[in-house]
Design a binder for these strands. Sequence first.
RNA 1: GCUGUCAUAGCUCAGGGGUAGAGCACUUCAUUGGUAAUGAAGAGGUCCUGGGUUCAAUUCCCAGUGACAGCACCA
Length: 640
Amino acid sequence: MPVITLPDGSTRQFDGAVTGTDIAAAIGPGLARAALAMVVNGAEQDIAREITEDASVKFITRKDDAALELIRHDTAHVLAAAVQALFPGTQVTIGPSIENGFYYDFARDEPFTPDDFPAIEAKMRELIAANTPFTREVIARDDAIALFESKGERFKAELIRDLPADQTITIYHQGGWFDLCRGPHLRTTGDIGTAFKLMKTAGAYWRGDSKNPMLSRIYGTAWRDQKELDAYLLQLEEAERRDHRRIGREMDLFHIQEEAVGSIFWHQKGWKLYRTVESYIRRRLDASGYEEVRTPQLVDRRLWEKSGHWDKYRKHMFIAEVVDEESTLALKPMNCPCHVQIFKQGLRSYRQLPLRMAEFGACHRFEPSGALHGIMRVRAFTQDDAHIFCTEDQIASETVKFVELLESVYKDFGFESFAVKFSDRPDERAGADDVWDRAEAALKTACEAAGVSYELNPGEGAFYGPKLEFVLRDAIGRDWQCGTIQVDFVLPERLDAEYVTAESTRARPVMLHRAIIGSFERFIGILIENYAGRFPLWLAPTQAVVATIVSDADAYAEEVVAALRAAGLAAEADVSNQKINAKIRDHSLHYVPNILVVGRKEAEERTVAIRRLGGAAQQVLPLAEAIALLKAEATPPDLR
RNA sequence: GCUGUCAUAGCUCAGGGGUAGAGCACUUCAUUGGUAAUGAAGAGGUCCUGGGUUCAAUUCCCAGUGACAGCACCA
């Protein structure tokens, strides 16, 4: 006699076992039509499942976010069914829902290409139109393995073998096709609707391991209705317009060419932006008790051998050969061992700790070709690196200080929110387990003290210690690690760093590796996409263009530019032989934040007409006033 | 690195077995104009590189390089 409690607190009693379908029908025909699945005691289930005991039940309708995930998951199933109908011999593997859609990985000798999409989509629409029910079947492990093996589905059989022993194994049928699946599902294929689209193909390793065979992945997107799908596709198009590679060219910021793959040619305007960011970070570090240093680019391999990097990362290091010498030098892939060398000069006292050593460290890493991406992932980059040498009980307070600094810096650059990930010990690592225990515990304590909530990223720590990652998102939703702080008990040991304690004994310092923006290259890439080229005035590489209406105003325009430059503003004159309309258009398309228009009238009255990017109105001000206004606006946030 | 797609003018792209085209940008001339395109003329390409097939290859085939998407990697 189950008693069902509904979300509004009301209860209904039934004579015996009931399905969600029964309950929804008992409540009303509207709900019976709308309910796609249900949540029983907090767990999502098929609406056709039976309930035999008292339970709280909530129905999922198309409006719920949970429905979107079911739609995506079910679309993946239909995709797999369509593919197997059209391409016999293709093996299925896994097909989850993901942000904005789903994918399905297939094993097939010939990978799929987008040319296959029209036929597959047509088949999918056919399966959806058939409105076939999804039905659930519980199956014994050995039967399941035998079933999939008999179909030649060796990947599925492998998955089943690796499922935990106590897990109930279920198969979902849709018509004659079935798949291993935990569920839950919608009622029928028809519940999926038609707002889906196959997007792209890609290779993906079986079980995410590059030692395994590569599968053919099909990505798709799926939504509740056509309106949502259209909005999503439009959003993708808009994101493409914000791509830093595109804006970088449009704004003449940088380029990359074949002769220096993974390295950036910074043009004048891009370098101006870079310098603005660098100056800002330097001021913040200076004000936060950091000491800036500069260490060598080329360092003998002996140091990398001692630090452990040679062993683990040699393949990713650029080696410099010297003709008449025996030594092997490597371009530094990171700065930490060099900073330890500075720390080791002379005897350090506990009184000097925490010692915060910063460097805008130029690093080179031979990244795999497939990893390169615009200026976000390059082979030559500069970190806003620093190492804090401290005692174990200073870890928490230093981490708190760092997080505060990072939050303040991100806010100044316009990033109000960002994700934090806690990455703990990887399989391949240096240092004993008890050291890792202490390092992870210290970082966790510090997070609590700093009030940081994080997502756990198991096994993703550095080889010498656990880390916190601060992640920013680019225009099309890809996540990039920018800031980081890492606790390291290992390197000081390996490189023999020590200090004199209050008791006059020797002790090892702890090293905190930390970066706020990560690398200038990546961060600037994110900045470009975040602002879509429309930078706040303090960051804009060209802050004002003085555009003349008639050539009689040319001399005055040059005078205005000189005055702006004297005030520290990046200004250019446009005295070209074009109409003012064309000049406005040209500079607007190049994201110039202020166009100062000068004609005969302005030249006579010694004024300028300011036109803001994106606005149509003009503001006529006396020259001195205009300069004061722009100068104030262009002041970096930390100097206001 | 792996899978797939792509590579034609500075940019965005069309074309096609008989050595190339558009728009924008660029240069010159005319035009001196009031807030998102003034007009005309001109210049500009080893059609990514190297092989092969062919009477003939920028086009077809193979390899390389690079870019893009995803996967793997990211000290």
